[in-house]
Design a protein around this nucleic acid. Structure first.
Lengths: 142, 142
DNA sequence: AGCATATTTCGCCATATAACGAAATAATTC
DNA sequence: GAATTATTTCGTTATATGGCGAAATATGCT
């Protein structure tokens, strides 16, 4: 029961679903997921942690970079089949198609440039795009 | 995207999963779902509303009684296949097996007796069983 | 070693959600 | 029609959750 609920809860947030869909393309660096969603790095990290706990994704570290991908052949069936269900039904959603297009552009950017930009380095002349509309909670801080 | 999220969110609550599993046995009256979960009637009603909105269940009224069942052949595939996934993976869970046993007993009780007991009629000598542990939120009212 | 960088963890906050009781609604009984 | 009954809707409350920034941690560069 715990595994099942972990999976259903993991998939109950739209941004997490978007993260999963982004990984359908293949392994991807956290910095690109941050760029795609426009969420704070800490938020993306927390979402990834939930997905990992549910055995929907797995990660590997390479230097400073952390890469995540959908769990492969060693995934428990409850997770694997739920993922299959999700990806099958989400593929034609406008939001996901939009994400896909943005992701193609993002993947063209040099990861070094991209990551540096996200940490607010003043040396990077590239401007950060305005954040997509994904604000839901705890955003309007005084 | 909306349909998919409706389904994933509907399944993200344990009590709602239990309700779905209970309906796997066949059409069932609300009063029996209330008895099974031990939740307040209003809570069960709200959960059923969420499940109905997600097209996971459908209902019919017969007199004073409302019966619900898993959505049948007219269900959208996103809901039907998610249900298939859930029921396939939940069937061996201890909690669900326990529910199944209780449900067999509950189904033996005359619905008239059961429903009257839930509304607190003093004329029914049957004692209400203590509530199972499903308290999570908003319970400890001062 | 000091500094820069990518990511995670922690703490806080605004909003969402599950729970309950009361009120409202619909159906039945007398 | 009044009373009873099953269920839904409404309002309130305690807890959960998603968001952010700051701090901590791990890796790389000089």
């Amino acid at each position: 029961m715990f595994e099942i609920m972990a999976v259903t809860r993991a998939m109950a947030d739209e941004n997490r679903v978007r993260l999963l869909a982004a990984m359908d393309r293949g392994e991807i660096c956290v910095c690109r997921l941050i760029e795609l969603t426009g969420l704070a790095p800490s938020t993306v990290s927390k979402h990834l942690s939930i997905l990992r706990s549910a055995r929907l994704i797995e990660g590997r570290k390479q230097g400073r970079w952390m890469y995540y991908r959908l769990t492969g052949g060693n995934a428990p069936d409850v997770a694997a089949s739920a993922l299959a269900w999700l990806l099958e039904h989400i593929k034609d959603s406008p939001r996901i198609l939009e994400d896909r297009q943005r992701l193609e552009e993002i993947m063209k950017t040099d990861p070094d440039v991209l990551c540096r930009r996200q940490t607010g380095s003043s040396k990077d002349p590239l401007k950060r795009k305005s954040k997509p509309k994904n604000l839901r909670k705890g955003v309007n801080k005084t």
